[in-house]
Design a protein around this nucleic acid. Sequence first.
DNA 1: CGGAATCCAGCGCGATACTG
DNA 2: CAGTATCGCGCTGGATTCCG
Lengths: 134, 134
Amino acid sequence: MGDRHMGVTGSLEPCADQDYPDCGVRHLLDRLGDRWTVLVLAELSAGTRRFRELQRALPGISQRMLTLTVRRLERDGFVERTVYPSVPAQVTYELTARGGSLTRQVRHLVDWSAEHKDDLTASRREYDARRRNA
Amino acid sequence: MGDRHMGVTGSLEPCADQDYPDCGVRHLLDRLGDRWTVLVLAELSAGTRRFRELQRALPGISQRMLTLTVRRLERDGFVERTVYPSVPAQVTYELTARGGSLTRQVRHLVDWSAEHKDDLTASRREYDARRRNA
DNA sequence: CGGAATCCAGCGCGATACTG
DNA sequence: CAGTATCGCGCTGGATTCCG
């Protein structure tokens, strides 16, 4: 039980990296945790998109955040950016194989959260109710 | 291709919730995305822990953040908090079944990121190098 | 069209001090 | 031991402006 190096059914193996723990999942979760990355992945998983198309598909996103989000995805090799030297400029974004792989992982999380959504909501209401009466 | 409602191998199904998209994954990723939640899950997946034990196991966490993190996990029903009315007070935390389920999901992400860590690092270096020369 | 640059508000989080 | 309360900084992300 004290063994932190078990298989898939075991623990998560805590890991003390220097100055920022988590062995690299941290970087991934930093991206997935931000406001738009998952939505961009979702939209791109439906096919190649131009900048404008992404923006229209993601109501509320600012130009700045869309740029930052796709840039970071491109930097990590999740998205490929293609510039067509037309006038006006035309740029398309599409998932790479790695991006598709990540998206499928994310989908598992999405499915899991969908499965447990009602339970979570109930737990929260219960907790808040108990707190108010205390 | 335009179908956003495919099966597991398909897209992520973008979803326009009101005022905050993502259909509930958002709330989950908000937690997983913060600095300490995954680390706490990791530690608790190794067994029941007292407040102090968690704090010692998570170098750098402040009392405040540990409290907030376990509170939110408790609120969502991922962690059970037990108070023993001894003097001084003694409180233990342990994963619930739901918390264990979530932790296993997280583990998949951890495994995935471990698998692709080197590729990501390489992609970033490549991207940054290209940027500097441009 | 597809950005980059700048300014600014919110809040996540750390540090510190106090409590049952 | 296991918290709660308060303050303050940094970073994320929104709004706006300008550019090729």
